[in-house]
Design a protein around this nucleic acid. Sequence first.
DNA 1: TCAAACCTTCACACCGATGTGAAGGTCAAC
DNA 2: GTTGACCTTCACATCGGTGTGAAGGTTTGA
Lengths: 124, 124
Amino acid sequence: MRIGQLSERTGTSRRLLRYYEEQGLILSDRAANGYRDYHEVTVDRVMQIRGLLDAGLPTRIIKQILPCLDQPRVIHFPDATPEMLATLEHEKARMTERIECLTRNRDAIGEYLLEVRARIGTRR
Amino acid sequence: MRIGQLSERTGTSRRLLRYYEEQGLILSDRAANGYRDYHEVTVDRVMQIRGLLDAGLPTRIIKQILPCLDQPRVIHFPDATPEMLATLEHEKARMTERIECLTRNRDAIGEYLLEVRARIGTRR
DNA sequence: TCAAACCTTCACACCGATGTGAAGGTCAAC
DNA sequence: GTTGACCTTCACATCGGTGTGAAGGTTTGA
């Protein structure tokens, strides 16, 4: 599929799709005329990238995480250096911290909303 | 406490503390000489802000969330307009999405690491 | 009284993610 | 064959979070 369709299906501007490619997050074949040609699977990949970006990860880190997300799993052995494994472990821990922070604060919002609505319910 | 101590205790540059204040995320009293004077509770507040920023929330949203985090809970009724409640509900949902995205991807990293280490364990 | 270590405001600069537009090539349909 | 909708690259712009440094005031301690 071409960039316009990928853009539409992922809700991501063409500009950003080219940017993600430049950053090594997605790949494209090229048609004879130079147009980018994307695999079907790229749709999911872009969604994953969007989610991680939205969750605060920079493209540099996302790029390192992506090999973990292939399904079925393919181990790229050149990537599996001890440093890379340590980086992944570290990022995994940071993600857990983020999850805990988000969960705590989301739950606090939930309780706040409950209480506000309870008070409104009593016409105060 | 003054800005230097707050900076040290939160691991946040003075520059950023002033920025957060400018964005309405924290408050300070002023001493007679113009120096900022922070409440003890500001330490936790700053940590919360850092966590949320790191999790991808912009200061604009964090500012709206902060009233939910007071302990014990204080309902600021002027803030509790229907629009604000809708905004909070919306942000709560977005936070849940982020949590799910981070959890999925973190778990995928975990499985990848397990598999890589298993293979290394078998000297392959 | 002087130096060091604070503090103030202001301004310019960077970086990453993103928008926008120019200048031009390709292709499908009329 | 011209029009319109696509695509290409390139470049400049914006925005939010952050660093840095200038120019100057305050406090503390030798």
